[in-house]
Computed example of a mutant assay.
Amino acid sequence: MTEQTTSEVVEPVEEVNDAVEAAPDQETDPVAVLTADLQRLQAEYANYRKRVERDRALAHELAIGGVLTELLATLDDIARATEHGELTGGFKSVADQIAAVTTRLGLEKYGTAGEEFDPQIHEALLHDTSADVKVPTATKILQPGYKFKERILRPARVAVTDPAETPAE
């Protein structure tokens, strides 16, 4: 990394020296040349800092997303235990704590029966037709989807119902 910084610093200086040699008739102020170099280096450093901060934030989000992805199976098991009334006592408080932590980290559960089917966020596992719907609809949520920030960790697995085609008369 030091070599890149050194070459970046040397390169603008060489460009300025080349410009000075190319225009010997024009009088150049060495203070103006050095000021321009300093401004250019400050701008490069500011851009470098912004890039590092952006990369650091992205790495942080990816790490949290990876941990949350690993917890999805556990969250599914907790939901099934809750549905069957098997989550009681001390295990219920642990499940509540896990749900609170994942919510605080930004994990969002999505997918409700009756919403329009969107292949970007839904995965169709079953398919049916019905005259009751006008557009392809997720009529049954087989497994909820999860997203972290704007990133889909797992699509909602759904049963899709398409509108029944009416025969042409």
Rank of each mutant, 00 (worst) to 15 (best):
T2N: 15
E3Q: 10
T6C: 08
T6L: 15
T6E: 09
S7Y: 08
E8K: 13
E8V: 02
V10L: 15
E14Y: 09
N17D: 13
N17V: 15
D18T: 13
A22F: 10
A23D: 14
P30D: 05
A32C: 11
L34Q: 10
T35C: 11
A36V: 13
D37M: 13
L38S: 14
Y45C: 09
A46E: 14
R51C: 03
V52W: 07
E53P: 12
R54C: 08
D55S: 11
E61M: 13
I64Y: 07
E70K: 13
D76P: 08
D77G: 09
T82L: 10
E83D: 13
E86D: 09
L87E: 03
G89Q: 06
F91A: 09
F91P: 07
Q97N: 13
L105C: 01
L107G: 02
E108L: 10
Y110N: 01
G111W: 05
T112C: 02
A113R: 04
G114M: 02
G114K: 05
P119M: 03
P119T: 02
Q120V: 07
I121F: 10
H122A: 00
A124V: 00
A124W: 03
A124C: 01
L125G: 02
L126Q: 14
H127I: 06
H127F: 09
D128V: 00
T129Y: 07
V133F: 12
V135M: 06
V135F: 06
P136F: 03
Q143R: 09
P144I: 02
P144R: 04
E150N: 15
E150M: 14
I152C: 07
P155T: 01
P155Q: 06
A156K: 05
R157P: 01
R157K: 11
V158L: 05
T161Q: 01
D162F: 09
A164R: 08
E165A: 11
T166W: 00
A168Y: 00
A168D: 00
